[in-house]
């Protein structure tokens, strides 16, 4: 009983917890993806602005083939901790000047043949842009931006997500206990009533449970069904009772008649009423009777089966002797006839 009582509630609690955990996990995943996108978008914006600034400053250097000033300009990128590599290419795609962050990871390998645009690596972003001097392209610039910061940011984010996850599961658990009770309890109680009825066969019990919705309908239908069963049972009992009474009356009457006519005695070995096949009748004939198919006048005891084929004739015979015998014989035929023939 206890285990049953628990199981539906536990199932409900587990269901709610699972749904809540799934929702939080999906939301966290969605936010993580969004976070990654927005981080990358802001990285692209930042690196583009830097490339444009540095490009504007180095455009003339490229135009006048002045490597030293170009490298000086690129060296100014040392104040930008996220720039791993900066490169200038001339219009033929040859490396013109380069800057590498001291101690920085190599990042995305830069190829001089890459076209303008942005290229994402696992941990870096490479941006290629044209360098333009007064509308005239004098070369191109490539910047490699370090994205590994995002990993630490993601880690921070994961910590927060884990805390939110645990908290939400905890709160959901507490809330679901109440919720599971309000849904599960009526069903648990109904199950208890049903079990009680099936054990005790007491159909007068009614489920007195307050519930709405489908559970309420179920309980009402259950009670209605119980009422039907109860009324049918009492009808059946009444019929059984009256049938018993009529059988007893019949047995008594038959015995009384047979004794009165003196043709024999009919002794029901059992007073049970039905079916006909269960009745074992022992018929004793005191005098030779006009039984045509048998011919025997002195048989003292026969089973019903032996005499069975002759029963209609007995009925005819009894027809002549007395009115009481007619009733009995007819009854007998009706009761035993079909099963005897079968």
């Amino acid at each position: 009983m206890r285990i049953r009582d628990f199981s539906i509630r536990i199932n409900l609690v587990l269901l709610i917890l699972f749904a809540s955990a799934l929702a939080v996990a999906l939301a966290s995943l969605g936010f993580a993806v969004y976070e990654r996108q927005s981080y990358r978008a802001s990285a692209v914006r930042e690196v583009t602005a830097l490339a444009d600034t540095v490009g504007a400053n180095t455009a003339a250097s490229l135009a006048f083939n002045d490597r030293n000033t170009a490298e000086e300009m690129l060296g100014a990128l040392a104040t930008e901790p996220h720039i791993l590599v900066a490169r200038l290419y001339d219009t033929q795609g040859r490396i013109f000047a380069e800057y590498r962050r001291a101690g920085g990871a190599p990042g995305l390998p830069l190829s001089a043949q890459l076209h303008d645009g942005k290229y994402f690596d696992r941990n870096s972003l490479a941006l290629f842009r044209g360098v333009v001097l007064n509308g005239e392209r004098t070369g191109s610039i490539a910047l490699v931006f370090d994205l590994s910061d995002f990993r630490s940011r993601l880690l921070e984010y994961l910590k927060i997500a884990a805390i939110v996850f645990v908290l939400s599961v905890l709160i959901t658990f507490l809330a679901s206990l109440r919720l599971a009770g309000s849904i599960g309890n009526p069903l648990v109680n109904l199950a208890a009533v049903a079990r009680h009825i099936s054990v005790d066969k007491d159909y007068s019990i009614r489920a007195r449970i307050q519930a709405g919705g489908d559970t309420g309908l179920l309980i009402d239908a259950f009670n209605e069904m119980l009422s039907h069963i109860q009324s049918r049972e009492s009808e059946l009992n009444n019929a059984l009772k009256s049938l018993k009474e009529s059988e007893e009356r019949y047995a008594w009457l038959l015995a009384a008649r047979m004794t009165a006519s003196g043709t024999g005695t009919l002794q029901p070995t059992k007073s049970t009423f039905l079916p006909a096949g269960t009745i074992c009748l022992v018929m004793r004939q005191a005098k030779p009777g006009p039984v045509p198919n048998n011919g025997s006048t002195t048989s003292t005891s026969t089973t019903r089966n032996r005499y069975a084929p002759g029963l209609p004739h007995i009925a005819k015979e009894r027809l002549r002797s007395s009115s009481a015998s007619i009733a009995c014989a007819t009854n007998l035929a009706v009761i035993s006839g079909p099963s005897v023939v079968a």
Binding site: A60, F64, N65, L133, N134, T138
Partner: peptide, 10 residues
């Protein structure tokens, strides 16, 4: 020639 051109730009 390139230098002369870029001078005109600047």
């Amino acid at each position: 020639a390139a230098f002369l051109f870029h001078f005109t730009q600047l």
